[in-house]
Design a protein around this nucleic acid. Structure first.
Length: 361
DNA sequence: AAAACCCACAACCGCGATCGG
DNA sequence: GCCGATCGCGGTTGTGGGTTT
């Protein structure tokens, strides 16, 4: 087992690439392809690390890359996907043909984050700052008992899509999430709140026609099916993505700027247990998008779809709490993982009670 | 005119996952 | 199965150009 190192750290050129170096990379790729970057510097006659050559090719020289500015549609898609899956730049970039993860990341860091902040929206949680402040203000006034607290605790701890930037381990972050979930099932904000819909500024319908929305539609579908399945079974709550917050509420984006803040809490992204059911719902979600964009579709039909969907969501939310009751009452049937979660919930609950108690009598 | 500052983007770094001898 | 090489990803830093003072 003798392999040469990918690069010799000594005597290698670093920094910006010259046109001559780019030409060498292009010549190398046209001759040898992109399968082996270790030998690329030597064969191409470059004093660069193979890794650096690969990066230069994948992030800049690839012929399929776009080099013009991001369009409003792309911008919107990035925001929605970031809200759904966090800073998974590679995945987000896959939904944007011609863009690299580095492009998307840089664009987010330099433009979109600032833009959202200026709109009064926290780019990390995708919630209005006013809401976050309100959440902080409510920390000391948490209700003593709730059957959603455990669910959230589990969500926060187990989400594979939870990144440190989105949910730090600090108590403040944890409490913020708890407070949101313990609010009413469908908390709607007043029209005066900063709204991502307003930020989107009418691009929603264009976005719905964009094939790049496939991932979003799938995420939405996964959420739908997991919610629906809870209403018909006593199975433990399956996690789901929360993409609905940025998806237009069916027919109208401007008339309804209301948020459902639970949707911003990133939860587990396990696949639904029933693939066929999942597919059907995914198909529905895709059809839903197409449905909205068809000419001649009556507003009544669209509103009917909307109200039915919202009713389903409302029922699903109630199922969450009901299932938590069931879960708590049949702890002997819980899995090992669930038992662990219950123990963690109890610790957290005790801790919250301690906070409620005065430090000095 | 020049220094200081800001901004956007390219490039690098480090780490985990995967590959393969 | 082990372990080093390689790949891919996300976070961070460096660089150059533009703007402000």
């Amino acid at each position: 087992m003798v392999r040469v190192p990918c690069c010799d750290k000594l005597n290698l050129k670093r920094g910006l690439w010259t046109a001559e170096e780019d030409a060498k990379i292009l010549a190398y790729v046209s001759k040898h392809g992109t399968s082996n970057w270790t030998s690329a510097p030597k064969k191409a006659g470059l004093r660069r690390c193979g890794k650096s050559c690969r990066l230069r090719w994948t992030s800049y020289l690839r012929p399929d890359l776009k080099h013009h500015n991001f369009t409003p549609q792309e911008e919107e898609l990035i925001i929605r996907l970031h809200a759904a899956i966090g800073s998974r730049w590679a995945i987000i970039a896959q939904q944007l043909p011609g863009r690299t993860d580095n492009d998307v990341k840089n664009y987010w860091n330099t433009k979109l984050r600032k833009k959202l902040s200026e709109m009064g929206i926290d780019p990390v949680t995708h919630k209005p700052f006013s809401q976050i402040l309100a959440d902080y203000g409510n920390i000391g006034g948490l209700p003593r008992s709730t059957n959603r607290i455990g669910s959230l605790n589990r969500d926060l701890k187990t989400s594979p899509y939870m990144k440190p930037e989105q949910h730090s381990n600090s108590a403040q972050e944890l409490f913020r999430g708890i407070d949101v979930v313990m609010s009413t099932p469908t908390m709607l904000l007043p029209e005066t709140e900063p709204s991502i819909d307003k930020f989107m500024n009418g691009n929603v319908h264009q976005l719905n026609t964009n094939p790049s929305l496939n991932l979003l539609a799938q995420l939405q579908a996964m959420q739908l099916v997991t919610e629906a399945s809870h209403c018909t079974s006593n199975e433990p709550i399956q996690p789901h993505f929360n993409t609905q917050a940025y998806l237009p509420s069916s027919s109208s984006s401007s008339s309804s700027s209301a948020f459902i803040w639970q949707d911003f809490l990133l939860e587990d992204a396990f696949l639904p247990s029933e693939p066929r059911e999942h597919e059907n719902v995914a198909e529905f979600a895709l059809n839903q998008n197409a449905f909205q964009t068809q000419n001649g579709t009556s507003k009544e039909e669209m509103n009917k779809e909307k109200s039915e969907y919202q009713y389903d969501r409302f029922e699903a939310m109630h199922c969450l709490t009901e299932n938590d009751d069931v879960e708590a009452s049949s702890s002997t049937e819980n899995t090992f993982i669930e038992t662990l979660f219950h123990q963690e919930d109890k610790i957290l609950f005790d801790f919250l009670n301690l906070l409620d108690e005065p430090l000095y009598d």
